[in-house]
C-alpha cells in the first residue's frame, strides 16, 4: 500500500468578508473549510469534487501555501507547512506546484512563452545555458505544443485558451515537482480541449510519478481522471472513496443529489435516481447540524439537525459523513 504524501489534519479556514454598502450582505465570516482531514497517497490522482464556494479551491491554496490554515496542520512528506521559512520554504515551492483555473489570467501577458516556462528554473537555479533551454523545450514538447520552437517566442495573447493552459502546465511541471494541485484546469476550456488537458495530466503522472490533487466541479471528469475522490460541501468533506465506488454507489445524500442533477441523455437507465434533494430548504429550523440538513430529504430532524456527523469509515478506504449513509433511495431507477 502506498504511503500518504499529503495530509490535512483537522484544517479549518475562515475568510472575513466585507459588507456591501447597499445592505443585503453584512460583513461576516465565511467558513471555507471546517475541520477537514484527508490523506493523499503517493502517486495517485485525488479528486476534490464540489460546487462553487464549497472550499475546494481554498484547500488547494492551503497546500501550495498561498494561504495559511487557521487551525489544523497541513503536512507534506511529514513536514508541517506552517513551520516552513526561508530556504526550506523555497525548497518546498520547488516540490509543490499549482495549475490555475483561468489560463487567460495565469500567464503574465508581458512575458513570452519561453520566459514564463523558464522562470521557475531560473528561480531555483536548476540549470543554466543550453541545458536550461533544452529543458524548457522538451517540457513544452511534452505538453503537446509542437514543434516547441514555434511557440517559445510567442506571447500569451497569440495563443488559444487551451494552448495557454498547456503552457501553464509546462511551467508547473518544469520543476519536476512531487505534488501538483490542479484547480479546475479545464473549466474555462472547450470540451474537446478538456480531454487534451486530462490526457496531459495522466501522461505527466505516468512519466514523472507525481501526485495530483485534482479540484473539479465535474463528477464525470473526476471519474475519468481520479483514483480516489472526496466530495466537499460547504467546507465539510461528505464522502471519500475510490472514484468508481463514490460515483456508482454513492452513500451520502448530497453526493446522490449531485448525481441526480447531472444531465444524462442516453444514460438514464444506467444511473439510478436517488431523489435525496428537497425542492425547498427546510423552513423554521436553524442549521447547526449536518451542513446538508436543510436540503436533505432523508434527514432526521432530531439527530441531523443538531449534530455534525463526522467522517466515519463504512468500508475499506470508504468514509461518509452521514448518520444514515445509503439509507433508502437509490434502489434501482425509480423515476427519471
Amino acid at each position: 500500500m502506498p504511503e500518504p504524501i499529503l495530509k490535512l489534519e483537522e484544517v479549518s479556514k475562515t475568510y472575513r468578508t466585507k459588507g456591501s454598502m447597499f445592505g443585503g450582505r453584512a460583513a461576516g465570516l465565511v467558513k471555507a473549510l471546517q475541520c477537514v482531514s484527508l490523506e493523499v497517497l503517493k502517486g495517485e490522482i485525488f479528486g476534490l469534487v464540489g460546487e462553487s464556494g464549497s472550499g475546494k479551491t481554498t484547500a488547494g491554496r492551503l497546500i501550495v501555501k498561498l494561504e495559511s490554515p487557521e487551525s489544523g496542520r497541513v503536512l507534506l512528506n511529514g513536514e508541517v507547512l506552517s513551520t516552513l521559512r526561508g530556504r526550506r520554504l523555497k525548497a518546498y515551492r520547488r516540490r509543490v506546484q499549482m495549475i490555475f483555473q483561468d489560463p487567460y489570467q495565469s500567464l503574465n501577458p508581458q512575458l513570452s512563452i519561453y520566459e514564463s516556462v523558464v522562470e521557475p528554473i531560473t528561480i531555483h537555479r536548476l540549470a543554466a545555458g543550453r541545458e536550461r533551454m533544452e529543458r524548457v523545450l522538451s517540457m513544452i514538447q511534452t505538453v503537446g505544443l509542437s514543434p516547441p520552437e514555434s511557440f517559445v517566442n510567442r506571447y500569451p495573447h497569440q495563443l488559444s485558451g487551451g494552448q495557454r493552459q498547456r503552457v501553464a502546465i509546462a511551467r508547473a511541471m518544469v520543476l519536476e515537482p512531487d505534488f501538483v494541485v490542479a484547480d479546475e484546469p479545464t473549466s474555462m476550456l472547450d470540451a474537446s480541449y478538456s480531454a487534451k488537458i486530462f490526457n496531459i495530466i495522466l501522461e505527466m503522472r505516468k512519466r514523472f510519478g507525481i501526485t495530483i490533487l485534482f479540484i473539479t466541479h465535474s463528477l464525470a471528469a473526476a471519474r475519468y481522471l481520479c483514483d480516489r475522490i472526496a466530495v466537499i460541501y460547504r467546507g465539510h468533506l461528505m464522502e471519500v472513496g475510490t472514484a468508481a465506488e463514490v460515483i456508482h454507489h454513492p452513500l451520502h445524500p448530497y453526493t446522490r443529489a449531485l448525481i441526480d442533477a447531472l444531465p444524462k441523455f442516453g444514460l438514464a437507465e444506467q444511473i439510478p435516481r436517488y431523489n435525496t434533494l428537497l425542492e425547498e430548504e427546510r423552513a423554521g429550523v436553524e442549521a447547526v447540524g449536518c451542513p446538508f440538513f436543510m436540503r436533505c430529504r432523508k434527514a432526521h430532524r432530531t439527530q441531523c439537525g443538531r449534530e455534525v456527523p463526522g467522517l466515519e469509515p463504512v468500508g475499506p478506504g470508504r468514509f461518509v459523513a452521514c448518520f444514515f449513509p445509503g439509507n433508502g433511495g437509490g434502489a434501482g431507477g425509480k423515476g427519471s
Binding site: L66, R93, V96, R171
Partner: peptide, 12 residues
C-alpha cells in the same frame, strides 16, 4: 491576478 500567484508558487 493568478499569474502573480503562480510566480509565488514557483518560489519567486
Amino acid at each position: 491576478r493568478p499569474f502573480i500567484e503562480a510566480a509565488r508558487v514557483a518560489g519567486a
